[in-house]
Amino acid sequence: MNRAPGTVAGVQAGLLLVALVASLTVGAADIPLRALLAALGSGGDADVLLILREIRLPRALLAIAIGAGLGLSGAALQALLRNPLAEPGVVGISATGALGAVLAFYSGFSARFALALPLGGLFGALAGTLLILRLTRGSGASLALILAGVILTTFASAGTSLVLSLAPNPYAAYEIIFWLMGSLADRSLDHVLLAVPFIGAGVWLLLHAARDLEALALGEDTARSLGVSVARLRVQVVVGTALAVGPGVAVAGFIGFVGLLVPHALRPFVGSRPQRLLPQCALGGAVLTLLADLGCRLMPTTGELKLGIVTALLGAPYFLYLLTRERALHA
């Protein structure tokens, strides 16, 4: 059942490369492959190179970074809460991150101080993570977790709508679609610079929590008796998740279910142990998000499809399946 982790990582890396290349060849303007390749060499069209460098590459880089953050934090949360249904979108962390970002953006604060945008997302996500831990204290049971997630998401989404309606700019009210359904369209290198360093820090923190998370397989008491500081581990996962998720939401809106789909898809291949699963989920999240973003552009719809819709179309049915399977186990 468990393939060698190296093989799985290799397959994912290969998929990532293919998706990356495909991502660069697809865009709003129909540019033939020949022209793209010519632009990379000398004597190619400078405009095409510009499109690759300023529009398509940032988009792909963001998809990779945001996807890695989402996949990894999903796996980490599932280990910490010992619940396979946990992930930033489901438990409401992405929604609170969006609220934080929206507050920073429409107040005009981020116009004066650019870092306010990812920081708004970061603090929003941090608040959400802390609230989830508080609301599920003593009971990592699914019902409590999902309810807490629903409460958080509902409140944060309502808050986001409120901020957007109060914003002076008339376009703000329509931008709810971006914040609640996520999109990587027309993101620039500026967005990459705003989000990726934070996401990178979060990914680093979460990867380093993997070893201690192993002990949680035996429950918190036994883990503590084995010398693991569960309190410190919790802080590490909370901060790591907020860093890996919040700034991503701030530049791309709410993208859900990646943190749910990726760990579940990879467990049959690499097992459940955090030290092996977490790094693979970072890679898997990047692949999934990049492919989903490709799907947004390839669908035969008039405008581009929103990224969060594609991940929801994949994730919600799977979530339902998980719920019914768990009910069946406890029936």
């Binding site: 865009g27 709003a28 303007a29 540019i31 405009d47 095409v48 510009l50 499109i51 529009i55 953006f105 429409y106 107040s107 005009g108 981020s110 116009a111 914003a167 002076p168 700019n169 008339p170 376009y171 703000a172 329509y174 931008e175 971006f178 027309d186």
Partner: peptide, 28 residues
Amino acid sequence: SVEALVLRQPAVIVRGTRSMGRALADDF
């Protein structure tokens, strides 16, 4: 789309002057 504008580069882009607070729409 931004890409189309870069490829077909109209000589002139006519935009509005109003600014009533911040919105993502301005990012375009």
